[in-house]
Computed example of a mutant assay.
Amino acid sequence: MAESIATIKLCEELPGGPDRTKKFEVTAVDVCTAANGVSVTAKASLTCEASSGAFFKTPPLDGKVVATVTLDMGACRITESNIEISGEVGGLLSSLPQTQQFARSWAQYRLSRFCGLQ
């Protein structure tokens, strides 16, 4: 599960830069039952850097990510999701309205692959 989570590319969602994920290291994954399914909470450290084509050339920016999803495994779908990003990069990614939707869509895609639907 940690390997799958580590494949998300959050920094690439930043327009102009820093637009490359230099490091996304999962530090903890907690899986437990929830009232309406299974809850998964993942914690990770994140470093974004500017690619050669980035408009803004900044030094690498660090942050911490806490993502929580609730899964309905029978239906193979995500019923709830939330991603919190702190640190230098947190202000940039958290200000983008598509960050939550991007993370949810990515997680649903990974879940669908796990369930054999893709």
Rank of each mutant, 00 (worst) to 15 (best):
I8R: 12
A107D: 02
V40W: 04
S81A: 06
A35M: 04
L46E: 02
P59Q: 15
L111Y: 04
S52I: 10
R77E: 12
T33A: 13
M1D: 14
T68K: 13
T47Y: 08
Q100D: 08
C115Y: 03
C76P: 04
Q101E: 09
P60N: 14
A44K: 02
P97R: 11
K22S: 12
T27P: 00
I85H: 11
L46G: 02
E88F: 03
T68S: 14
G91K: 00
S95G: 10
E12C: 06
A54E: 11
I78E: 02
S95Q: 08
D30K: 13
I78P: 00
A6S: 15
Q108C: 00
K57D: 06
R113D: 13
S105K: 10
S51E: 06
F114P: 02
E88M: 12
S95I: 03
T68N: 01
G74F: 09
E88L: 15
L10C: 13
A28I: 01
G16Y: 09
N82E: 05
Q108E: 11
A103F: 03
S112H: 02
E49C: 12
F24W: 07
K43T: 06
P97A: 14
K57Y: 09
Y109G: 15
I78D: 01
E13F: 01
V65R: 05
L61A: 13
E13C: 06
T47W: 10
E80Q: 13
S86V: 10
C32P: 04
M1Y: 03
D30A: 09
P60E: 12
G91M: 09
P60V: 12
V29T: 05
V29I: 14
E49D: 14
S112L: 03
C11N: 14
G63F: 10
A2T: 09
G87C: 05
A107F: 07
A107T: 11
W106Q: 08
C48K: 10
S81Y: 00
L117T: 07
S52E: 13
A50W: 01
L46K: 04
L14I: 11
G53D: 12
T99E: 05
G17S: 09
V89H: 05
V26C: 10
M73L: 12
L117D: 14
T7L: 03
E3D: 14
K9V: 05
I78T: 06
R110N: 07
L46T: 01
C32N: 09
E88H: 11
R113M: 10
R110L: 09
C11D: 13
F102C: 00
Q118F: 04
T47G: 09
V38D: 04
S52A: 11
G17K: 07
V26I: 15
D30H: 11
L93Q: 01
K64H: 07
L93V: 02
V66T: 14
